[in-house]
Every structure is written in structure tokens, then in C-alpha cells.
Amino acid sequence: MKYDLPKNVRIINRTIENDQAVTLHLAVQIDFAPGQFLMIWIPGVDEKPFSIAGSDREGVMITVRRRGNFSRRLSGLDVGASVGVRGPYGKAFKLAENCCLVAGGVGFACLAPIADLFSHAPIFYGENTAKNRIYQKRFPRLNFYTVDGSGGKKGVPTDDLEALIQQQGCKMVYCCGPEPLIVKTMRISQSLGVDCQVAIERYMKCGIGICGQCVCGPTRVCVDGPVFDGLYLLNNPDFGHRRLDATGGWESIEVIQKEKRNHEN
């Protein structure tokens, strides 16, 4: 049987991305591939999944946007504090250099390791409003969009996707973000006959394929995902529509998106 308990690691750097989000640099070497995630534990509080947002010789990074109690606690931790880490978990992206990236919100964190790897790949990144932008210094040159027009181009990151794919002949589109954005990206890729891989999110508990909380159709997002082939997800009965909440009851993706927008505005 596996031995897979959280390991305590120190926060060695803390970058303030904006007034809602921080990037924490954790002093732990993890052999991961882009798309994989970690379970981050604050002892005595809770444990949640986070995409691995990057790495260097000192360790790995996660980006935390404040949503609820746990993310508020985690994003408030100072350099020198410790968190528990287990992972990496999940399936990674299959890598193709001739690609472009479509990121929505903090979903950018999941794609950032690909952007590090393929530094010439075009990035389309959108937020509801400009003050939510992350990775200003890390990725200063990208196509930035805001829904409210407060920064970058007014619109969403899929607006210019079709034109770019046709111009540059990208062979792969990587996407992570709100489900409506992912659906749009998958449809555009499908219509142009371009491969598309996406990383999705569900309420996660065990992270190891046992509890059934992160189910999406017949698949478990923690072990069968979080990265899926776009074509596969287009035929998944739950994707884009519903997910389980903490109790195991269905909640509507549309309602969640609406609440998130109201919270941000």
C-alpha cells in the first residue's frame, strides 16, 4: 500500500499578485508535469487541491485566490510558515510545442508551467476585471482581456483564438478557467480540427480516486483528470453543467459562475 501522508514544507517566498491573490513558493522539490496538482493542508483547518503553478531550484509554486475561509487562511500565511503537501496527483498535459494557451482567472496557474516551457506560445488570458490580473511580472507580454473593459481588450480570451490558430497554424490548444470558457475553447478547437486539452476543477476530498466527490460523468477528476482531452469532455454529461458540492449534492455550474461574478464585482 502507498504511504502518502502530507509532508510539512516551509513557505520561502510570497508574491502578492493583487489584492485577492498571492503566489506561495514552497521549499519542496516535486517531480511533476504541467497540469498536475498538490493537496495543500493547513493543520487543524482543511486541505484543498492547488495546481502546481511553476517550479525552480528551490521548490514549487502555487497561486491562491481568496474564495472562502481556507483560501483566506492560506493566502494570509507569511514566509517561514509551514503547510502540509501531498502529491503530485492527476494526469498531466500531453506536451506539444506548437501550441497556444487560453486561460481564465486563476486557471492561468495551471497553464503557467506550459508557458514557462514554451515561452513563444501565444497566451490569451482573461479576467472579469483588470484588478484581478495575476503574473504581471512573470508574463508581461500576453493578450489580456477583461469582461468589463477595465484593462487589456474588452472581451473574453476566446475572441481572437480562431484567427490566431488560422494565422499561426497551432497544433494544440491548452485551456483552463471557468467552464463556459473551456466549452467555448473546445468548440473552436473542434471546428478547426485542432487538438485541445483542458484542465477542469471539481470539489475534491481524497485526491486519490477513492471518495467519489470529484466525479464528472463517469470519471474521477483527481485520477482520470484534471487534464482531459477536449473532445472527450464535449461528450461528458456533467461537464459545463453540474458538479457535486461538499455534501455530494449537484449544483449548477451556471449558478456558481453567476455567484462568482457577483462576488467579484
Binding site: 502507498k2 504511504y3 483547518v45 482543511d46 481524497c206 477513492i210 455534501t247 449534492g249
Partner: peptide, 30 residues
């Protein structure tokens, strides 16, 4: 409906699992 216990709820400790999910479930109606 029950939210169950906070995470970690299921962990592999080398000889099996230790769990305290706390009966999270959506309740009878759902």
C-alpha cells in the same frame, strides 16, 4: 444533507487507509 468532516478525510498511511469522511451525503431528497 451532511457536509462531513473537514479535509484531510482519506489518507493512505502505508498499510491501508485511514478515513474520517464523516458521512457527507446530499440527504434523502436528492
Amino acid at each position: 444533507p451532511r457536509k462531513g468532516h473537514p479535509n484531510p478525510t482519506v489518507l493512505a498511511f502505508g498499510h491501508g487507509l485511514i478515513n474520517a469522511v464523516g458521512y457527507s451525503n446530499p440527504g434523502l431528497e436528492k
